[in-house]
Simulated scan of single mutants.
Amino acid sequence: MLCAAMVYIAMDFRLVPLTTGVAIPWTTPIFISGIRVTNSIAAGILQLEQAVVIEVIWLPFLKAMDKQYLKNDTEEDMTYRFFKNVLIMIRLKLMQRN
């Protein structure tokens, strides 16, 4: 919701140009997809800013979750859960992009 508001405000104030209507594959990485969709580097920079905002919002929750896991986990379990959390973050970023 916050990222959608950021994009709306940026486009409303013409800080980022409107999209051109070009369709790009969903696998296109952030920054590159923003540039291709708007033909402007400003959209790519906005996407990077959104990624930072998402990370700042989710980091306290992931740290709290890690603390809970650390109470009873062995070293093998910690490695598994770390990579699981990384995958969760990637999924959330992809969901925010769409």
Results as ranks from 00 to 15, higher is better:
M1T: 08
A4C: 07
M6N: 07
V7A: 01
Y8R: 08
Y8W: 06
I9Y: 01
A10D: 01
A10R: 06
A10V: 00
F13P: 00
R14H: 02
L15S: 00
V16P: 02
P17M: 09
L18R: 13
T19Q: 11
T20L: 05
T20V: 07
G21R: 05
G21T: 06
A23C: 08
A23F: 10
I24D: 01
W26D: 13
T27H: 04
T27C: 06
T28V: 14
F31C: 02
F31P: 04
I32P: 02
I32V: 15
I32K: 15
S33D: 06
G34K: 02
G34T: 12
I35P: 04
I35K: 07
R36F: 15
N39W: 09
N39S: 08
N39L: 14
N39Y: 13
A42T: 07
A42E: 12
A42I: 10
G44S: 05
L46P: 03
L46M: 12
L48W: 10
L48I: 15
A51N: 04
V52G: 08
V53M: 11
V53I: 13
I54V: 08
E55I: 14
V56R: 15
V56P: 05
I57C: 13
I57M: 12
I57Y: 15
I57P: 09
I57H: 14
W58G: 03
L59S: 02
L59Q: 11
L59H: 09
P60F: 05
A64T: 10
A64R: 15
M65C: 13
D66A: 13
D66W: 12
D66N: 10
K67V: 10
K67A: 15
K67Q: 13
K67G: 12
K67R: 12
Q68H: 11
Q68N: 10
L70K: 12
D73H: 07
T74E: 02
T74Q: 06
E75V: 14
R81K: 11
N85W: 01
N85C: 02
N85D: 08
V86M: 06
V86G: 00
L87S: 05
I90H: 00
R91E: 07
R91F: 00
L92C: 01
K93P: 00
L94G: 12
R97T: 00
R97F: 01
R97W: 01
